[in-house]
Design a protein around this nucleic acid. Sequence first.
DNA 1: TGGTACATGTAACATGTTACATGATTAG
DNA 2: CTAATCATGTAACATGTTACATGTACCA
Lengths: 180, 180
Amino acid sequence: MTFELNPTAASLLGFLHDGPMSGWDLVVRAEERIGEFWSLTQSQVYRELARMAQEGLVEAGEPGTRARKVYAISDEGRDAFVEWVRRPPGNENIRFPLLLTLAFGQHVPDPMLASFISRHRIIHHDRLANYERQRAEMPSDYEDVDPYAVATLEFGITYERAVLQWFDQLPRRLTDLRDE
Amino acid sequence: MTFELNPTAASLLGFLHDGPMSGWDLVVRAEERIGEFWSLTQSQVYRELARMAQEGLVEAGEPGTRARKVYAISDEGRDAFVEWVRRPPGNENIRFPLLLTLAFGQHVPDPMLASFISRHRIIHHDRLANYERQRAEMPSDYEDVDPYAVATLEFGITYERAVLQWFDQLPRRLTDLRDE
DNA sequence: TGGTACATGTAACATGTTACATGATTAG
DNA sequence: CTAATCATGTAACATGTTACATGTACCA
C-alpha cells in the first residue's frame, strides 16, 4: 500500500522524472505544461514537496543559496507515481465565475454584464493567441515533439476557440457596452 | 461592510429569490441550473446555509418532518447577494484529470490510455445529448424562457461539442482499444 | 412489514487561497 | 549602493471532500 497521492503532488513527481528541481522550478514548469487545465499555487507546491520528502517519495539535496532545496524523485516516488497515473482519471471540474454571474444576470444591469463579458472575452482571445503561437513554434519535424504535449495543447486551442465562438453568439443585449 | 460571500453561498441566495427552499431543494436546483460550470456538494450547501443563517442572510422556518428546515432569504441576504453578483467575476478554473493523465501519457501503456479516453468520451457525449434535449424542450415561444439560462445552456453545448471534436482528432494511437 | 432509497445533517480531514516574512540577486 | 524583483518558505484560514449517522417515506 503506497502513499496516497493527490493529482497536484503526483504532477510534481511527474515533472521530477526530467531531473531534480526546486519548488520554484516546479511552479514554473507546472504553469507552462499543465496550467491550462490544472491550477496550482506556489504555496501548495512547497507543502506537497515537504510532505513527499517526509514520506520518502522525494529527496531534498543540500540547501543552496536562499535556502534553495533541489528535490529528486526516489524509487518509492516513481512507484507511487506510476500507480497514480495508471488509475482511471476522475471527471473534470469547471468553475467559471463569469457563467455564475451570467446565470444570475437578471440581478445585474445589462451594460455591467456586458463589460464583464467583454473583459473575459479578451482574456480568452489572448490565451488562444498564446496557444497558437506555441503550436506554431513547435518543430515541424514531429520526431522531436512529445505527442502528449501536443494533445493537451490541442485541447487548449479547441477549448478557447469554442469559448470565443460562444461569446460571439451571445445576444447583442448581453454584449452591448453602450452605457458602461 | 456586508458579509463576504463566496460564490457557492451566493448562488444559494440567488436561488432563494425564487422562494423558500430546503437544503435538499437547493442541491437539486443547483445541480440543474449551474452544475454544468459550478460544482458543489450537498454537505457544502448545509454548511453555507447554517453560516448564512447565523449571519442573518437567510432565515430558517420551523423544522418540519425529518428535521427539514426551509430557508428564506432576508433583506440582508438580498443586499449581500446584489453586492456579490455585481462584482467583476474571477477567472475560470478547469481541473481535468484526464488531461493530467494524458500529459504524463508516456508513463501509461497506450491501450490503457485509450480506455481512459474512451470512457470520458462517452461521458461528454451523453452530457451533450442531455443539454441538447434540454434545449429542444424549451418553449419555442421565447417569452417564457430566461435568456440567461439559455446563454449558460449554450455554453454547455458549445463546450461539450468542442471536447468531442478534440477527442475525435486525437491520434489513432491514443484512441485505439485493441489490446485493452 | 421489511427493505431500499430519500432527505437531513455532522464531523474529520484534505486541499486551496491569501497574506506575510525574509534573504538574494539584479538593474539602474 | 539601493530599490525592485526573485525565490524561498510559513501560517492562518476558507473551501471542498468523504464518510458516517439517523430518521422518513415509499414500494414490493
